[in-house]
Design a protein around this nucleic acid. Structure first.
Length: 198
DNA sequence: CCATTAATTTCAT
DNA sequence: ATGAAATTAATGG
């Protein structure tokens, strides 16, 4: 979701700065605001019972996060942590809902965004169901790539660390590294320096 | 240069 | 094949 900044301001939104590793909200908090990134990157994560991190998603400029909890009366099931110094616009959720009422077109757009998210979850579930690490990585990469440009000739350069990649699909770093090497051998990806090209 | 963080390798299971 | 620990590389101050 991406709403015009000035529109957000006109409904009472404010800019907040966050440092690296600073949480925007934590698991268990109740949703008070609509959040939209104007600068920086935010990860949504959760730690399982043995302390292993699972990353739900990593969002960047002009993307919102945590919006489902605006409509669901439940505490956040995950944390939102800044990966770098970030500027985030926040709008109290009642004002946000008010804004949707005044601008039905936004409401429609919201539906499209939610659908996109549900689709992402479906794809991820399918690849996570696979025992094969290569399958899991391929599933994630396919999705991330489709999310990217429309330029078919250019390779898509992954802006994630291997650790992050691993935490997005529930694997260990070493497993990711080994799977990536195999994939390079098979020609499905390219490794340049330490970047992943897909 | 030192400290920090990420990538890769080694080694045991 | 997998993960913990050790090693190596890069990044930032």
């Amino acid at each position: 979701m991406n709403v015009d900044k000035n529109l957000l301001y006109s409904f009472g939104a404010e800019d907040i700065s966050f440092k690296t590793r600073e949480p925007v909200f934590n698991e268990g908090d109740h949703s008070q605001y609509y959040f939209q990134i104007s600068k920086g990157r935010v990860k949504l994560n959760h730690y399982n019972e043995d302390g292993k991190e699972f990353i739900h998603n990593i969002l960047g400029k002009n993307q919102s996060f945590g919006d489902p909890l605006i409509f669901v009366n439940q505490p956040y099931p995950m944390n939102a942590i800044c990966l770098e110094p970030s500027e985030i616009i926040r709008l109290p959720k009642n004002n946000f809902i008010e804004m949707l009422k005044v601008h039905p077109d936004l409401s429609l757009e919201m539906n499209a965004c939610f659908s996109q998210q549900v689709y992402y979850k479906l794809i991820m579930m399918q690849s996570l169901a696979s025992q094969n690490p290569v399958q899991r990585i391929t599933g994630l990469l396919d999705y991330l790539k489709s999310f990217q440009d429309g330029d078919c000739s250019a390779y898509f350069e992954l802006a994630l660390t291997r650790q992050q990649l691993a935490n997005l699909i529930g694997l260990r770093v070493e497993t990711v590294i080994r799977a990536l090497k195999k994939m390079e051998k098979e020609g499905s990806i390219q490794l340049k320096d330490r970047k992943i090209l897909y």
